[in-house]
């Protein structure tokens, strides 16, 4: 569904992504992990069309993408941002945020579609006319997901969708993303600094460091410790080290 080949992205004079390639089959998920500045979010923004300063090849469903995207592209590809406080317009109600894609793409039945979208992301209908500041962080992120799904895309680009949320809310949002994927056959390209989150959603993981994709491996290999690159090993060790305490606790409570 998504094919990226030799992608290079520049910010002014600096190249921040040095030629990366990846493939995501239809209905699957690909996770990009890395530290801040490793270029992982930049890849998402280049693919979504938000950053036009790139070279290389990107294909959506075997169709090459141009610098400029047409309206049809945005019906098929949508993005969820990291900060649910910053990704919703502060002066627009939930209703308005969800109407916007419908108006732009000229879709009918606005009321019915919005009601359906809210129930799809498990939000009560009572939030429909609220402003973002009247919602909790988790509710905002659900609204952002609902907005991304309004025009019924096939591909969802997820930029750290849970890192601004509390862990209990993170669990709810991760479950929701998984349910939506199964129900709608969505293709995910997920970016996160949290190895466990990526491993939870994606069967294939790419590890980024300093603008390079240093290793692509299956989640099973990662879990089992079959890693090749030292950076992957380092990230894995940090995650596993912290999990020790929690893991034991979970076993005790189970």
């Amino acid at each position: 569904m998504i094919a990226i080949d030799g992608l290079r992205v520049r910010f002014g004079p600096n190249e921040v992504v040095h030629g990366i390639s990846l493939d995501v089959p239809r209905g699957s998920s690909f996770g990009l992990v890395g530290e801040s500045g490793s270029g992982k979010s930049t890849i998402l923004r280049a693919f979504s069309g938000l950053n036009p300063d790139w070279t290389g090849k990107m294909r959506l469903d075997n169709v090459p993408l141009d610098r400029k995207r047409d309206r049809a592209f945005f019906r098929r590809v949508q993005m969820v941002f990291q900060d649910p406080y910053g990704s919703l317009h502060p002066r627009q109600t939930v209703d308005r945020a969800l109407s916007e894609p419908l108006i732009v793409h000229g879709l009918q039945d606005r009321d019915a579609r919005i009601a359906q979208a809210l129930s799809d992301v498990a939000l009560p209908n009572s939030v429909r006319f609220r402003y973002p500041h009247q919602l909790s962080g988790g509710q905002r992120q659900r609204v952002a997901i609902a907005r991304a799904l309004m025009a019924e895309p096939n591909v969802l680009l997820l930029d750290e969708p849970t890192s601004a949320l509390d862990v209990s809310v993170q669990a709810e949002v991760l479950n929701l993303l998984r349910d939506l994927q199964q129900r709608r056959g969505l293709t995910y390209l997920l970016v996160s600094h949290n190895l466990a989150v990526v491993a939870h959603l994606c069967p294939i993981i790419g590890v980024m460091q300093g603008g390079d994709l240093v290793e692509t491996l299956s989640t099973d290999d990662l879990r089992a410790g079959r890693v090749h690159h030292s950076h992957t090993a380092q990230l894995r060790a940090l995650t596993v080290e912290l999990e020790d305490g929690g893991e034991a606790a979970a076993r005790a409570s189970a």
Binding site: V167, A196, A199, L222, E243
Partner: peptide, 8 residues
């Protein structure tokens, strides 16, 4: 503790 996704 339970609701965190775990690598292991």
């Amino acid at each position: 503790l339970n609701c965190m996704p775990r690598l292991s």
